[in-house]
């Protein structure tokens, strides 16, 4: 029982990370119509900036600011320098351009900081573990990640549903042409949305530091999962991104945790482990395929 609860918490925590990335990606795609493969690079930049600053200064607050700032600044720079020229273009041009950005950013990062993974210490304030239910000790840092995710989700809900900017974002996601026609400064709105997405990706990167290793290519590993989440949830919907992220996080974690045990009852150990690894990696893709076969536009499509 405690094992199930622990794995569920792990799943929620992975879901939260995916939500932070997918929320930005889905807004950018929904509002601006841009397929941004370089979203994972923003995550990596946030992670590296935080890791380096934490190592040099020892200050968690500074590291957080550096991670968020670097990701947001790079995001705005990319939007102004590259993406702005591609809004009117075909999706395929956007794919090629953002793929080119990935190549550049990854190699530049490898040259600056090396290919060795950087391990980040858990901030002293969040070290140790607590006992949420009897018999289960769980790291405070992971609980903190989940709490941050909940706070961000509520914050995004308020921002999108209760403020004027949010109103423009919602309008932009459903009727982009109309918002333009009504005389809204779309360029500014786009830059702001992209900056917000980059900020959230940076936040995910900062929090990923102490859990995963910070290394070149970490962005692409999670990028595909993020796209899966976006499509399951329905493109352009933050609510869908949240639900999709939790589903993907929990399904992936539970399958990885319990599949080997189930299969070992049926076949030899080594074969069972290999097959279980394959099957559990397949899980989320199977989930996506099923969701799309039943609801071809995802669970909560923004463009009705």
């Amino acid at each position: 029982m405690t094992l199930v609860v622990e794995q569920l918490l792990n799943g929620v925590q992975l879901g939260v990370m995916l939500f932070l990335l997918a929320a930005g990606l889905t807004l950018v795609f929904g509002v601006m119509g841009i397929i941004n493969l370089a979203h994972g690079s923003l995550y990596m930049i946030g992670a590296y900036a935080a890791a380096i600053v934490a190592e040099r200064s020892g200050s968690t607050a500074l590291a957080l600011v550096a991670g968020l700032g670097a990701a947001a600044a790079f995001g705005v720079l990319v939007e102004i320098a590259v993406l702005r020229r591609l809004y009117a273009r075909d999706h395929l041009d956007q794919v090629l351009a953002t793929f080119a950005l990935i190549l550049f950013v990854n190699q530049a990062t490898a040259m600056l900081f090396g290919r060795q993974p950087i391990f980040v210490a858990v901030p002293s304030l969040l070290q140790g573990s607590i006992e949420p239910i009897p018999g289960l000790t769980y790291p405070v840092f992971r609980i903190a990640v989940i709490v941050v995710g909940i706070v961000v989700a509520i914050g995004l809900y308020v921002l999108i549903n209760k403020t004027r900017i949010g109103m423009l974002v919602r309008a932009g996601a459903t009727h982009r042409q109309m918002v333009r026609a009504l005389g809204v400064d779309v360029r500014l709105l786009f830059t702001a949305v992209f900056g917000l997405g980059a900020l959230l990706a940076g936040l995910a990167g900062v929090m990923a530091g102490p859990i995963l290793a910070v290394q070149v290519g970490m962005g692409e590993q999670i990028l595909i999962l993020t796209f899966v989440v976006m499509v399951i949830g329905g493109v352009g919907s933050v609510r869908g991104a949240l639900l999709g992220a939790l589903m993907v996080g929990i399904v992936d974690t539970l399958m990885r945790a319990f599949m080997p045990g189930l299969l070992r009852g049926l076949m030899a150990g080594a074969d069972a482990d290999a097959l279980a690894a394959g099957l559990s990696s397949m899980g989320i893709y199977l989930l996506m395929a099923i969701v799309l076969l039943v609801r071809p536009r995802g669970l909560f499509p923004a463009h009705a």
């Binding site: 020229r85 591609l86 793929f99 080119a100 950005l101 550049f104 950013v105 190699q107």
Partner: peptide
């Protein structure tokens, strides 16, 4: 890749 990236980018733009 540091050089291939910008080349590809130039082709798109």
């Amino acid at each position: 890749p540091l050089y291939l990236g910008p080349i590809l980018l130039a082709v798109v733009l």
